Simulated assay, not measured.
Amino acid sequence: ILTCLDRIKWEQDGTLGYRKNCRNTICGSCSMRINGRSTLACKENVGAELARLRQIHGLSDEEIPAMTIAPMGNMPVIKDLVVDMRKFWDNLDAVDPYVSTQARQIPEREFSQSPQEREKLSHSGNCILCGACYSECNAVEVNPDFVGPHALAKAQRMVDDSRDDRTETRIAQYEQGTDGVWGCTRCYYCNSVCPMEVAPLDRIGEVKQAILSRRDGNASRAVRHRKTLVELVRDGGWVDERKFGVQVVGNYFRDLRGLLSLAPLGLRMLVCGKFPLSFEKSEGTEEVRSLIDSVRELEAQNR
């Protein structure tokens, strides 16, 4: 598709603006939306896209569907397919994506890493900062302060890098409000569009797990939300809504302001007959509990 854009620029419209550089899925410069999804123009080819569109729209092999090329989303358009990526780069800088060794004694040669330690960095290390995940991020669309999946994928690299000496400081930074990992809506779109299989959502999940392993339920509402949700599902197969709000927002009756904030909602639910006065465990609760316990055992083994 990048070659097609080149032909259009060279032979039909010399004013067409777009970015390109390596032409080999290395630099990430040629990101754009191709038929509704962000990807690299140098990676996608016309034949595969036509086949995909035919399958989506149920067209025959003889029919030629129209292809749509558009600039990336969540960033202002400068010209044609060129977008302003300053916020993208600023958000990356906000997570301080550089290994810090300030508090360590610098060795004579280099910091050594075991293969197992290096393996933790493989996925995030493959990121070429093309912006495809940021372009399709629903969280960025509704919350401009969310740093984005690209930045948090790099954040995971910093958290798990054995050479870094600021792990605890970073974790405290990445869990703040909805700007960090708790702002992710878990839509999985970043995983589906990433051309390098970085799987940003999985990396965000690893940062969350690092936070949860270090924090108890009193640390923040976000941590309490995650822990309470899992425990309630483990106990009853699904969420007991009578307990959920009290435990998460009210912090087990410790947060009076939080409890009072629930009162209007609770009254409306009572008036509408939607307040659950009783709770019955779902069928298959034991199976759900077994699955959760198995996942916890695997996580403990992988730490």
Score class of each variant (00 low, 15 high):
Ile211Arg: 02
Tyr252Asp: 14
Thr25Pro: 05
Cys27Thr: 05
Lys9Pro: 03
Val147Cys: 00
Arg214Pro: 05
Gly14Asp: 09
Glu175Tyr: 06
Asn251Arg: 15
Arg242Asp: 02
Asp240Asn: 15
Cys127Lys: 01
Cys22Arg: 05
Glu136Met: 12
Ser135Pro: 01
Lys20His: 14
Val193His: 00
Thr3His: 14
Leu260Gln: 12
Ser213Val: 05
Ser278Ile: 13
Leu2Gly: 01
Glu141Met: 12
Glu108Gln: 14
Lys9Trp: 05
Phe111Thr: 06
Gly237Ser: 04
Gly73Met: 10
Ile204Glu: 01
Tyr189Met: 11
Ala155Val: 04
Asn74Ala: 05
Asn191Ala: 11
Pro144Gly: 05
Val82Gly: 03
Leu129Phe: 10
Ala66Met: 13
Gln113Asn: 08
Asp93Gln: 12
Gly217Val: 11
Ala153Thr: 06
Ala210Gly: 03
Ser278Asp: 09
Val288Arg: 09
Ala222Ile: 00
Trp182Gly: 02
His150Cys: 10
Ala155Ile: 03
Ala155Asp: 01
Ala139His: 00
Tyr188His: 11
Gln116Gly: 04
Pro97Gln: 09
Phe275Cys: 03
Arg214Ser: 14
Glu11Thr: 12
Trp182Glu: 02
Pro97Val: 06
Leu50Pro: 06
Ala151Ser: 10
Gly125Pro: 01
Ala199Thr: 13
Val198Gly: 00
Leu232Asp: 00
Ser220Gly: 06
Asp165Asn: 08
Gln113Thr: 09
Val77Met: 07
Lys79Met: 04
Val82Phe: 01
Ser192His: 14
Ser114Phe: 03
Asn302Ser: 11
Val233Asp: 03
Leu277Asn: 08
Ser100Thr: 11
Gly125Cys: 02
Gly237Pro: 02
Thr285Tyr: 09
Glu297Ala: 10
Lys281Met: 14
Glu283Thr: 08
Ile171Ser: 00
Ser38His: 11
Pro76Lys: 08
Arg254Met: 12
Val181Ser: 00
Gly14Trp: 09
Lys87Glu: 10
Gly266Ala: 06
Ser38Met: 04
Leu81Val: 05
Ile106Pro: 02
Val246Asn: 08
Glu49Gly: 00
Val159Ala: 06
Asp6Val: 15
Pro195Phe: 01
Asn24Asp: 13
Thr285Lys: 14
Phe244Ser: 00
Leu229Pro: 00
Leu53Asn: 01
Gln102Asn: 09
Asn91Lys: 07
Gln102Lys: 11
Phe279Tyr: 14
Asp240Cys: 02
